[in-house]
Deep mutational scan, measured.
Amino acid sequence: ELVLALYDYQEKSPREVTMKKGDILTLLNSTNKDWWKVEVNDRQGFVPASYVKKLD
């Protein structure tokens, strides 16, 4: 499943990933309501769920 980055996000820990507004990311896990695991540029990590939106 793919998600769209709604905002820029700068990683604050090694478990997170940086994304730019408009990026298309692969959603790996959305079981946590606050932090979703995504893959971007061959890196996996977490981003705030409120910063991304699922693409239909």
Rank of each mutant, 00 (worst) to 15 (best):
E1R: 14
E1V: 14
E1W: 14
E1L: 13
L2P: 06
L2K: 15
L2C: 10
L4W: 08
L4P: 00
L4Y: 12
A5Q: 01
A5V: 10
A5R: 02
A5N: 00
A5W: 01
L6A: 04
L6D: 01
L6K: 05
Y7D: 07
Y7T: 07
Y7C: 14
Y9V: 01
Y9M: 01
Q10M: 12
Q10C: 11
Q10Y: 15
Q10I: 14
Q10F: 14
Q10A: 13
E11H: 09
E11R: 14
E11Q: 14
E11L: 08
E11W: 06
K12P: 04
K12A: 11
K12M: 11
K12G: 08
S13Q: 08
S13K: 07
S13A: 09
S13P: 04
S13E: 09
P14G: 09
R15C: 15
R15L: 14
R15E: 11
R15N: 14
R15K: 11
E16F: 07
E16Q: 11
E16A: 07
V17F: 15
V17S: 02
V17W: 06
T18K: 04
M19F: 10
M19W: 01
M19R: 00
M19N: 00
M19D: 01
M19Q: 02
K20I: 08
K20F: 12
K20T: 09
K21H: 06
K21F: 05
K21M: 08
G22Q: 03
G22F: 05
G22M: 03
G22N: 06
D23N: 08
D23Q: 15
I24D: 01
I24M: 07
I24R: 06
L25M: 13
L25Y: 11
L25G: 13
L25T: 00
T26C: 12
T26F: 13
L27K: 02
L27S: 02
L27H: 02
L27Q: 00
L28Q: 04
L28S: 03
L28W: 06
L28M: 08
L28D: 01
L28H: 05
N29G: 07
N29Q: 10
N29T: 08
N29K: 07
S30Y: 08
S30H: 09
S30M: 09
S30L: 05
S30I: 07
T31P: 04
T31S: 15
T31V: 10
T31A: 12
T31H: 11
T31C: 12
N32V: 05
N32T: 06
N32S: 10
K33N: 12
K33R: 14
K33V: 11
K33I: 11
K33L: 09
D34Y: 15
D34E: 12
D34T: 14
D34N: 14
D34C: 15
W35R: 03
W35Q: 03
W35L: 03
W35C: 06
W36K: 02
W36L: 04
W36I: 05
W36A: 04
K37E: 13
K37T: 07
K37F: 15
K37V: 12
V38Y: 01
V38L: 04
V38Q: 00
V38E: 00
V38D: 00
E39G: 11
E39Q: 15
E39W: 10
E39P: 00
E39R: 13
E39M: 13
V40K: 15
V40D: 10
V40L: 15
N41L: 13
N41A: 13
N41C: 13
N41R: 14
D42C: 14
D42W: 08
D42Y: 11
D42N: 15
D42I: 06
R43S: 06
Q44V: 14
Q44R: 11
Q44D: 07
Q44Y: 07
G45E: 01
G45I: 05
G45V: 05
G45R: 01
G45H: 02
F46T: 03
V47S: 00
V47T: 02
P48L: 04
P48C: 04
P48W: 03
P48N: 02
P48R: 04
A49H: 03
A49S: 13
A49K: 06
A49N: 03
A49Q: 06
A49E: 04
A49R: 11
S50C: 14
S50P: 07
S50L: 10
Y51V: 05
Y51W: 06
Y51M: 12
V52F: 06
V52Q: 00
V52C: 14
V52G: 01
V52S: 01
V52P: 01
V52W: 02
K53W: 10
K53L: 13
K53P: 02
K54Q: 08
K54T: 08
K54Y: 09
K54L: 13
L55W: 08
L55H: 06
L55P: 04
L55T: 06
L55S: 05
L55R: 04
L55V: 11
D56F: 13
D56W: 11
D56E: 13
